[in-house]
């Protein structure tokens, strides 16, 4: 299946629009986790505009697909999607990180409709997602649970505790995705704490493993569809991404894990994003 040409163009436009909104939100927030938000933006675009079976009018709908943002520090990358989908007022984004706002660096599920888990401390999302997936089986529900992890986060032992248990308990309704941007706070993932051979690790833990360019919407869509149809195992999609993707002057630079910039810089970065998407559309269509 994958994406039709029309879908590809629409989704690429949406991804661009969301990257712009993420940059605006980072600026309104006075600084936020921009690098990992931009690396995850294409993944989130496909989830929120194509694959998640959700209804913004009924955020607590029992049969909805679950999405857990395990790399909880990119709340600033997720909140624009929740606003654009209509879960929260778009104007709220302008209060991001402000005292008393319902939106802060790490989003709170009890304050943000549409959010399935409060995350921030790393290594928590996969166990929570596994609980949701097992609950679906226990309650005879057919929803899927998607979990987006950071790659640096996969240093945490609890990720592998959950991976072991997901495979043991045959959570074939669980889809983990890793935003493999190869950066963490102190440098490259391979310099700080090597993850490779990363795919082999997941395979050894009993997962179906898919590896894909996390910025190739068509390939990413195909991987997501493969994951949705996978058999008796949990699936992980390792998405090869670029930190800060779309803003050429910062992309791939681990120092842009967290950054703040003024309106002028935001404008320049948005121009870079527009160029990036124009180029990508030409290459991929």
């Amino acid at each position: 299946m994958g994406l039709s040409e029309k879908e590809f163009l629409e989704l690429d436009e949406k991804a661009k629009e969301m990257r712009h909104l993420i940059l605006d939100t980072v600026q309104w927030a006075g600084g936020a986790h921009v690098g990992g938000s931009l690396s995850a933006a294409d993944i989130l675009t496909l989830l929120y505009y194509k694959y998640l079976n959700i209804d913004p009018g009924k955020p607590d709908w029992e049969d909805r697909d679950r999405f857990v943002l395990s790399k909880g520090h990119i709340g600033v990358g997720l909140a624009p999607f929740l606003a654009d989908k209509g879960y929260i007022d778009r104007e709220l984004l302008k209060t991001y990180n402000h005292t008393g706002s319902s939106l802060g660096m790490h989003l709170d599920k009890n304050k943000v409709p549409g959010l399935d888990a409060s995350t921030g401390s790393l290594g928590h999302g996969l166990p929570i997602s596994l609980g949701m997936a097992l609950a679906a089986k226990q309650r005879g529900k057919s929803y899927k649970t998607w979990c987006l992890l950071g790659d640096g986060e996969c240093n945490e032992g609890s990720v592998w505790e959950a991976a072991m248990a997901a495979s043991h308990h045959k959570a074939d309704n669980l889809i983990a995705m890793v935003d493999r941007n190869r950066c963490m706070m102190d440098g490259s993932t391979e310099d700080v704490m090597a993850l490779e051979p990363f795919a082999d690790k997941w395979r050894a833990f009993g997962f179906n493993v898919l590896e894909v360019d996390g910025h190739d919407l068509k390939a990413l869509a195909e991987a997501m569809e493969t994951a949705l149809e996978a058999g008796d195992k949990p699936t992980v999609i390792i998405c090869q991404t670029v930190k800060g993707c779309g803003v050429e002057s910062i992309s791939g630079d681990y120092r842009y894990h967290y950054a703040s910039f003024d309106p002028e810089k935001t404008r320049l970065f948005k121009e870079e994003i527009s160029s990036y998407h124009a180029k990508r559309r030409e290459e991929k269509k």
């Binding site: 166990p127 929570i128 609980g131 997936a133 097992l134 609950a135 649970t145 072991m164 308990h169």
Partner: peptide
């Protein structure tokens, strides 16, 4: 559900189950 000797996952899974109605 036996989660093996892995207490972090144990309580995380319980949280996920509770949020899904168990």
């Amino acid at each position: 559900y036996n989660m093996g000797i892995a207490e972090q996952n144990l309580f995380g899974v319980a949280a996920g189950m509770a949020s899904a109605g168990l």
